[in-house]
Computed example of a mutant assay.
Amino acid sequence: MATDIGIDLGTASILVYVKGKGVVLKEPSVVAFDVDTRKIKAIGEEARLMIGRTPGNIVAVRPLRQGVISDYSVTEKMLKYFVHKSVGKSLFGRKPRISVCVPSGVTEVEKKAVEDATYAAGARDVKIIEEPVAAAIGAGIDIAKPCGNMIVDIGGGTSDIAVISLGGTVVSTSIKVAGDDFDEAIVRYMRKKHNLLIGDRTAEDIKIQVGSAYARAEESSMEVRGRNLVTGLPKTVTVTSEETREALREATAQIVEAVHSVLERTPPELAADISDRGIVLTGGGSMLQGLEQLIEEKTGITTMTADDPMTAVAIGTGQYIEYLGTK
């Protein structure tokens, strides 16, 4: 009884899909370890809660940066932990087949690092799949047909934009502007506009609750606590969705520009298909309010978000092995 597993190896979170069970695990890709002994203290959600709150000898790190491995040994331990957590250790001696997704712009060396880390985590066979292809499968698109589908997958570290036809990528681009950059833009804006220093977690809360990329019918606001840079004391300010739109303008414009550049390079027949079928958004970053409308306004093409954008890549990665089996 071997198991087929699909892993969405994201910069912000890792999702594990097990054949027959669906997505069984979704945890932040954060590891907390002791600097002196290199001993791991916590992995996943438990480690995320430690970010910005640890004593000097313990650091909470993200071993993946912009979709690629930045700390090999920590990534290997993290993968091993998540694989065991999702399938258990009793695999009747058979190791699982694992498919892992990577951003479309990664180099062969970066791909090899992911492959090696997955084998070290206990895989029998490893398949590497490009994120947009996985996202398309997970969003329920039949990628085997000879017609163009455009996928915009906005994750934590990278945004992958691709035109897919006949099971492969025709034109694609990967930019290092995504959810994390939205958070950083909010941190910078708060510092500049309100003289308020906030952490990444607070920035993420602002993005989720009042973040917007396009004018809302009803503006919303929330209270934010941080440290006043002038007095050094705690301070509370009110942030509106209009302000977040201003903060995120540059980052969202880069994503729209990347979509535009892929459309420019798309063969005319496939461009006609995309015009009919629309653009599909996936990934956690696509949940930013107003992003659909912004892309639609700038390209003139109907844009929609997948039913469950967070898990689309993980589901597609898991189903990719089945897809290969039917070919």
Rank of each mutant, 00 (worst) to 15 (best):
T3M: 06
I7V: 10
L9E: 06
L15V: 04
G22H: 03
L25T: 12
L25M: 05
K26N: 15
P28V: 12
S29T: 15
F33V: 04
D34F: 14
R38F: 03
A42N: 10
I43T: 12
E45A: 13
E45V: 09
A47T: 11
A47E: 06
M50Q: 08
I51M: 11
G52D: 06
G52P: 05
R53G: 00
R53H: 15
P55Y: 05
V59L: 14
V61H: 08
L64T: 07
S73P: 12
V74W: 10
E76D: 09
L79A: 11
V83Y: 10
V83N: 06
H84L: 09
K85A: 12
S86K: 00
G88Y: 02
K89Q: 03
K89L: 15
G93N: 01
I98P: 03
I98H: 05
C101L: 04
C101P: 01
G105L: 00
T107V: 04
E108V: 03
E108G: 06
A113W: 04
E115K: 00
T118K: 02
T118N: 05
A120L: 06
R124S: 07
I128K: 00
I129R: 05
I129E: 02
E130F: 09
P132E: 01
A134D: 00
A134S: 06
A134Q: 06
A135H: 06
A136C: 00
G138A: 08
G138W: 10
G138C: 05
I141E: 01
D142N: 11
A144T: 07
K145H: 13
P146A: 06
M150N: 09
I151D: 09
V152Y: 11
I154A: 12
G155N: 12
G157I: 09
D160A: 03
I164S: 08
G168K: 07
V170M: 13
S172W: 14
I175K: 11
K176L: 08
V177F: 11
V177I: 15
V177E: 07
G179K: 08
D180M: 01
F182H: 04
F182V: 09
I186W: 09
V187L: 00
V187Y: 01
V187M: 15
K192I: 08
K193P: 00
L196K: 02
I198H: 05
I198F: 03
D200C: 14
E204I: 05
K207P: 00
V210Q: 09
S212P: 05
Y214N: 01
Y214L: 05
A215Y: 03
A215C: 02
E218N: 07
S221W: 01
G226P: 11
G226C: 07
N228V: 08
N228L: 01
V230S: 03
T231N: 02
L233A: 12
P234F: 10
P234Q: 02
V239G: 08
S241N: 00
S241V: 06
E242P: 03
E243W: 03
A253Q: 09
A253Y: 10
A258L: 02
V259K: 02
V262W: 12
L270D: 10
L270Y: 11
A271Y: 11
I274F: 13
R277I: 05
L281V: 13
G283V: 14
G284M: 04
G284D: 14
L294I: 13
L294P: 04
I295W: 02
K298H: 12
G300T: 15
T303G: 12
T303H: 06
T305L: 08
T305P: 03
T311G: 04
I315S: 13
G316M: 04
Q319S: 12
